[in-house]
């Protein structure tokens, strides 16, 4: 972290797959600079040898019993899909560039 770091909102929005209007970018750029400026406060602390906390609860993974259950049905899970083909495939726009397919 350093005061010289300048966030490039356009680039970060690409990473996050967010379409932003030009005026949105300007506003977000200002907001980010202010918020990141505030976060620089953390530089004051010496965090050498401190173990990071990812999770407050001291839990570890365990194996559950291998028991069959009944998940919600296919039809229910597909009810929210924006478009279906043959009632069971989710319709998506073309994935690979090139001529349109049907």
């Amino acid at each position: 972290m350093s005061g010289n770091t300048k966030i490039d909102v356009s680039y970060v929005a690409e990473l996050a797959r967010l379409e932003l209007a030009p005026e949105e970018k300007v506003k977000l750029q200002e907001d980010m600079e202010e918020i990141l400026g505030y976060i620089e406060l953390l530089e004051k602390l010496d965090v050498k040898d401190i173990v990071p906390t990812a999770h407050a609860a001291p839990l570890r993974n365990i194996w559950r019993e291998d028991k069959a259950g009944t998940p919600p049905g296919k039809d229910i899970m597909l009810e929210n899909a924006p478009g279906l083909i043959d009632d069971e495939l989710i319709k998506v726009p073309q994935v690979l560039p090139g001529e349109g397919m049907s």
Binding site: M1, S2, V12, L15, L45, V47, I50, V51, P52
Partner: peptide
């Protein structure tokens, strides 16, 4: 979380979370 800033922000944040 982006490449080059992870340690400076996210990791440091998690360490201060410990404190």
């Amino acid at each position: 979380l982006s490449s080059g800033y992870y340690d400076a922000y996210y990791l440091r944040g998690q360490k201060v979370r410990t404190l």
